[in-house]
Design a protein around this nucleic acid. Structure first.
Lengths: 365, 365
DNA sequence: AGGAACGTTGACAGCGCTACCAGCAAAGAC
DNA sequence: GTCTTTGCTGGTAGCGCTGTCAACGTTCCT
């Protein structure tokens, strides 16, 4: 009677089948589609597996079935807080499912992304989550040829490869600027770092809004390719204010920059929001508790990740969503840093809970 | 002559071997140990592989060789900035190697860690990186029985399972308190959140230092099991100051809390550092550019990750480090928030670069 | 010159699992 | 009662690669 036990002493499916008194293929089915078994065999296999402490060999399964249960995730940064929220959503949603996450970092390089994509695709992933819509032509072709579901996350745009979930960075920036216009601000600066495609589209939204209002002035824009940081926010603002001392607001491409601008204002004794209003982007946690509290554009990062993973798993299992492109929208969270003072602002009380946000403008598409 | 091309049209090792005019096993060797081939065959296989665009099938390799090229990583949080730095180090160091990273989130639960560990070990990983030294007895037993190298990261302690890389949280906290003593502070509060084992050891260090100085007072300690945040830092500090209005310094278990304390001080018009000194932990980027700049204990997170991955890979390949336990130390970065004012602090200049740190106390073991 | 030692190569036999298809019994259709 | 349909089960034949061991040619030693 053939080989028993492998040399490593590992329990194989065959052992489980033997103990349960069924054929190996029946035991195999139990793990993939229990409903296909009669109740009697199902319970027999189940208890046999439990008794032996059987754990399936994923490599053998992948080899035999010609597909893996791996979801590939390509993100541009591991450091950026924005992506850690998205990732948390992805991991949370995939937990409990049979799928495991394979993460790679493109470091904001679409060439690196192409290389990683080639690597991923060769392992026949069950599904793929990629960041953004700006792939190389080669990457695009590979994605379209891939025979697995794909979700593009972080933004929405035309021509999705497959599924898409995100929001319009362009519209979000316009909404932020509109809010500043509402507050009577006219000379609104733009501070941006890294200038990846999504930041670029925020800049586009800013430019469009300013042009429409007849207030566009390229000298109000300060950007750099350097990775973002709080310190950099201060430095860029210093450049801006040195050149354009008449600005009355700054729209920052992200919250780190906004915090840096706030600190720089404090350092220079520029009153926020009286002299200069500040608006950030992403609504990280600290924005609600700084002094003054900082206005920001809230984005649904965790939901983006968890929904992307959920949609992807559904699609892998054959249930394609009726709505393959999902706009998660954004919300302008209006806080102290962008209020135009109506009466004189009296001295602050010692009420720390006064950091609560004011009313807000939501964009739920 | 036997099967050609699999139905999916994938290039297999056999095709490469055929084109190169060698046996499949020789081609296989080329990918695993090129030095074993004669130069002639080596170049033939290499060009054949390139020409066909061959990509090895990892599942088949894993099945045949009975081992995977996967490094399992268990961390307690995906949100915490601290871990994103560590992760970046791990990913950077593993890039270019043959090993891929399999990441899982224990959410600070040692039971969850045990479950994940069981899952990981069943897939015979090439190596394992686990966080901390506080595993369940069961986990500990599994780790000790595992036949792969293991690195424990984030802290050092007695009885490493295998390799270990980190620093002493206890000593780091003591160094921070010693610095505050140097600055003449006596009533030093402790603010901590989440209270995972490493934060607990920082608290232990604080308690020991205070006791030795005869200044220990349990009412100076405010902690919570809630996950950390900037807002929470403010709230905890509010609790502390409401109860103990005579404190002259606060040691925060992390930088988010420290920033929250700073904002809360500003809200209450408490002068930092004149009335209250603030010291954080980890030295996140923003600590250097806040107003005032914030003192913190710098930890070598990126290096911890990259060194752990490098050591692990070396060990996997049979080159065990002569030094299996590595203390990466820490540095107290002294900034404005903990200086005792000697002369009166004059008005600030508009020099943004004045955020530069002062001198610092390094602990390089 | 004979033999050992070395470096290089290849044949064979799986690794543990699942796709495919056939078989069989029970249930339903006419 | 016969024929089809359905539900469940099992046999066979790999998936693509590598471990093991034997065989080969070459070089070096005595």
């Amino acid at each position: 009677m053939g080989r028993k036990r492998t040399k490593s002493g590992k329990i194989r499916l065959a052992e489980v089948a033997e103990l349960a008194g069924v054929s190996p293929i029946t035991a195999s089915r139990f793990f993939r589609n229990p409903e296909a078994l009669s109740v009697a065999k199902r319970t027999r296999v189940e208890s046999a597996a439990r008794e032996l402490g059987y754990v399936p060999n994923l490599a053998a399964r992948a080899l035999a079935s010609q597909r893996t249960e791996v979801i590939g995730v390509l993100i541009p940064s591991l450091t950026n807080n924005v992506f850690s929220d998205v990732l948390r959503g992805i991991y949370d949603a995939s937990e409990g499912s049979r799928y495991s996450i394979q993460l790679s970092n493109t470091r904001y390089s679409i060439l690196q992304e192409e290389k990683l994509l080639r690597l991923f695709l060769a392992q026949k992933p069950a599904g793929l989550i990629v960041t953004g819509i700006d792939q190389t032509a080669e990457s695009r072709a590979m994605l379209e040829a891939a025979d697995c579901p794909i979700v593009q996350i972080m933004e929405i745009g035309p021509k999705p490869v497959d599924m898409m979930i995100g929001f319009s960075h362009y519209d979000a920036a316009r909404a932020a600027i509109a809010h500043l216009f509402d507050q009577g601000r006219r000379r609104i600066g733009f501070v941006g770092a890294r200038m990846d495609p999504r930041v670029q589209r925020r800049l586009d939204g800013y430019v469009a809004a300013m042009k429409e209002a007849g207030l566009y002035d390229p000298r109000l824009i300060v950007t750099t390719a350097t990775p973002t940081s709080v310190t950099l926010g201060g430095a860029l603002f210093a450049d801006l204010i040195a050149r354009e001392s008449d600005i009355d607001a700054v729209f920052c491409a992200n919250d780190d920059l906004a915090l840096g601008v706030l600190f720089e204002c404090r350092r220079r004794e520029i009153a926020v929001p009286e002299q200069i209003a500040i608006v950030g982007f992403n609504d990280l946690e600290f924005m609600a508790s700084s002094v003054p509290t900082l206005t920001s554009v809230r984005t649904n990062r965790y939901e983006m990740g968890s929904t992307a993973a959920t949609m992807l798993i559904e699609a892998i299992e054959g249930r394609r969503p009726e709505q393959p492109v999902l706009d998660l929208g954004f919300t302008v969270i209006e806080r102290q840093s962008s209020q135009t003072p109506r009466p004189a602002a009296g001295p602050r009380t010692d009420q720390w809970s006064s950091v609560a946000q004011n009313d807000s403008v939501t964009n739920d598409p």
